[in-house]
């Protein structure tokens, strides 16, 4: 299960806390040290861990906790609160443009899961009785267009492709025009994977953004990503201003550090979690439920 390692470590720490009647400052320091290690071992970003632990420490050392009759419970509640807010607090639903068409654009590193997620989103949006177009803007990866076409067929959504055109910006413009002419409610742009440090390709995203003015630019992040997750998210956010994040491959046994880091550094919500390779494996992300699950509550 995802978060398993983190979950069991944190719960061990809590067990120790609950076993004690009253807590001393030393107990809390020891507990926060253990929490810090657990988070680091779970790939939560180093900087995120530092500020997280500082928050816990400050709140837990507050007079109320030390005087409380159930101090262990109080600390657990604080950690639960902080974890929830770290992952964005309230769940955020995907919104549609009140008038006209809604334009979504999926971006991310190579292999993050964009094309698959495009299909999953199409299936999800179709269930809300909306007409969805998938636009194939990856001209680089061999058979990327074909991949989207196969996926489009699987979810019964039309795919706009132009195999003659080599410029993704032009394809995006054509796709948008096509979508407008054919009264689509939603169009989803699948873009090629790219490194956040690749200036030329990042600039291409800026160009696509300019020409199709997406309502939502959504970063796909592989849940297995390590410490780099925050740099990736920060850079994409700086360059093209994200509206949210989708965590993919959360069906693995990853320790979930990326999940805990990305929302907090970008301030952008985690909209969905990818839970498998099937095109129905997409779930709305609930920060509070995820926190409770990690803490075994």
């Amino acid at each position: 299960m995802v978060f398993e390692g983190l979950s069991s470590k944190l719960q061990d720490t809590f067990k120790k806390l609950k076993g004690k009647g009253k807590l001393t400052e030393k107990d809390i320091k020891e507990a926060t040290r253990e929490i810090k290690l657990a988070l680091l071992e779970a790939d939560v970003n180093f900087k995120v861990v530092k500020s997280f632990v500082k928050n816990i420490n400050e709140r837990a050392l507050g007079a109320d906790v030390l005087k409380s009759l159930t101090p262990g419970q109080q600390v657990i509640k604080i950690v639960n609160d902080e974890l929830t807010s770290l992952m964005g607090g309230q769940p955020v639903k995907l919104t549609y443009s009140p008038k006209g068409m809604t334009v979504l654009m999926l971006v991310g590193l190579q292999g993050a899961g964009k094309t698959t997620t495009a299909g999953k989103l199409a299936a999800y949006i179709k269930k809300e009785s909306k007409k969805v177009l998938l636009a194939a803007c990856d001209v680089y990866r061999p058979a990327a267009i074909k991949q989207l076409q196969v996926i489009g067929k699987q979810v019964d959504a039309e795919v706009f492709a132009d195999t003659e055109e080599k410029n993704p910006v032009v394809i995006a413009e054509k796709a948008l025009k096509y979508a407008k002419e054919h009264f689509y409610d939603v169009v989803i742009f699948d873009t090629a994977g790219r490194l956040h440090i690749d200036e030329a390709l990042m600039d291409e995203l800026v160009q696509i953004k300019k020409s199709v003015t997406p309502d939502h630019i959504i970063l796909n992040i592989d849940s297995m990503t390590g410490q780099e997750a925050v740099n990736v998210a920060e850079t994409f956010n700086e360059k093209i201003s994200l509206s949210g994040v989708i965590l993919t491959k959360l069906d693995g046994d990853t320790r979930g550090g990326a999940a805990l880091s990305v929302a907090s550094v970008t301030g952008k919500p985690i909209l969905f979690a990818g839970m498998g390779e099937k095109l129905t494996d997409l779930e709305i992300f609930y920060p509070d439920r995820m926190a409770s699950r990690i803490l075994g509550m």
Partner: peptide
């Protein structure tokens, strides 16, 4: 293995 991955690569 993907160089971007974290400790999950151990598993």
């Amino acid at each position: 293995l993907d160089a971007t991955s974290g400790t999950n690569a151990l598993n």
